Simulated scan of single mutants.
Amino acid sequence: MDFIDQVKALAARIPGQLEHIKTEAATRNALVEPFIRALGYDTSDLAEVVPEFGADLDVPGVPKNKKIDYGILKDGKPLILIECKCYNDKLNDGYKQLFYYAVATDCRIGVLTNGLIYRFYADLDKPNKLDESPFLELDMLNLKEPLLDELKCLTKSALNIPEMLTAANELKYVGGMLQILTSQLNEPSDEFVKFFFQQLCSGRVFAGSVKPQFAGFTKRAMKQFIREQINSILDASGIGSTSAIASKPLSEATEITSKEVNASDDSPGKPITSIVTTEEELEAFYIVKAILRDVAEPNRIFSRDVTTYFGVLLDNNNRKPICRFYFNSPQNKRLALFDKAGDDKQEEKVVIEQLDDIYKYADRLKKTVARYG
């Protein structure tokens, strides 16, 4: 197995091991040493992997009885230093010791871990002084394969410290930007929201009720943008049922336009009225489109959100309702079906506990579409 496969296999075993791990030593033996071996280093070769590294070093700022748990060496020179904690300990401690040993040995890569979380540090800001923030954090219980790809530079077979440092510099700043974007997506700051406001509403005052209203618009716009980008990428790759998802994912009612924004002035007490389409409604819509892809082209399936329900239509025609979602009450979610003979407007509401329950009514949804031809 290659490095990525080995780490995945190690991660899969972790949940069953935790109840048997009681100490830091057990964490090192059961979790950390297998990870070192996955990197390609021989933990039984003391010329390559040295436990309790630094026994002969007098490092200022570090008590003499404190040693780094592992040093990975090449030609007697440490290339990677690893400090370990017990798996249930937080990684608040340990960085200082790692920092001082890196300074004393001119080591440019340090790792702080509890066997579940691996934090990778490098001396990107100042030579031979590890940065306070890691350039990469790996969670063994929530593996992200792109991060594993970045770590291949540290495997024995492909060890390339300059290449790793180049990648680390990019990861540090890209990771920081991702954190900022995630934060703004969840709770956009006034400055972030104001940027869009000024672009769209030149000359208007960013104050009063407009600020929280536009914050809501910003969150919706960002989420819609992300969905559209993902759909575009997946659609281009032809993966799975992408075509059932990518075509016009939002109804006109959910689009944020300058017309909607300008429908209100800046005075308090005059809110900007709009229909908010929830993530849950959109996910349900995607499920219906996926179900119907065998009986109708995806571009024939439309959504229309109104105040009381979220509707799914064939050919964007009000006379061809396929189903409706009544999700305004989280405790009483209902799916409305239209497969009964007779009046197309006559709906039958069924209770669903979770979105996957929609699949139970796949045949009835297909029957409805078949009736319209």
Rank of each mutant, 00 (worst) to 15 (best):
S303P: 00
I275K: 05
G240D: 15
L355R: 07
K126G: 02
L154I: 03
K194S: 05
D125F: 08
D305F: 03
E83C: 08
D357S: 04
Y70A: 12
E145M: 03
N231E: 08
L314D: 00
S133F: 10
M177K: 08
E347Q: 14
R371K: 15
Y173C: 06
K22A: 14
A102D: 05
L148I: 14
L234Q: 05
K126D: 08
Y41E: 12
E279D: 15
D265F: 02
F120S: 04
K129M: 13
N318V: 04
A296L: 00
F310C: 02
R37A: 14
R334Q: 15
V50R: 09
I4S: 10
R334L: 13
E353I: 03
L148Y: 13
V306F: 01
S267Y: 05
T273Y: 03
Q6E: 13
K223C: 06
I36V: 14
T23I: 11
F195K: 10
L31W: 07
R13D: 14
R371Y: 01
I322R: 00
I82Y: 08
G16C: 04
A30F: 07
A104Q: 08
K129L: 09
L91T: 06
G175L: 03
L313G: 00
V351F: 06
E19W: 06
R371F: 03
A11E: 02
E191F: 05
Y309A: 08
L335I: 07
H20K: 15
F53S: 06
D93L: 10
V62D: 05
I275M: 05
F325K: 00
K96T: 12
S241W: 04
L124F: 11
P51D: 02
F310Y: 13
N231D: 11
A167D: 02
L79Q: 14
T257C: 05
Q354D: 09
Y70D: 10
V50E: 09
I275P: 02
T308P: 01
G240S: 13
P146Y: 06
D139S: 12
N169G: 12
G61V: 08
L141N: 15
E283T: 13
F53K: 03
P51F: 01
G61I: 06
G94W: 09
P15Y: 09
N29V: 13
A253Q: 05
E48M: 11
L178D: 06
N169Q: 10
K77V: 14
Q331S: 13
A122C: 13
L112W: 07
A263G: 14
L313Q: 03
L165T: 07
N65V: 11
P15W: 08
Y309R: 14
G373A: 08
Q17R: 10
G94L: 06
S209Q: 07
V288L: 02
T27W: 01
N160W: 06
L313N: 02
P34V: 12
F196I: 05
T218V: 15
K74N: 13
I230W: 08
K340T: 12
K345F: 08
I301Q: 00
V59Y: 11
G176Q: 14
L46E: 04
D294N: 09
A25Q: 13
V49S: 10
L10V: 04
P268Q: 04
Y100S: 05
P15L: 11
F196W: 15
K144Q: 15
Q331M: 06
F99D: 10
K8Q: 15
M222Q: 04
S202F: 08
I117Y: 09
P51S: 02
S274G: 02
V350F: 11
T278G: 00
D139H: 14
E83R: 02
T23E: 09
E52M: 03
A244K: 04
A284T: 01
K74H: 15
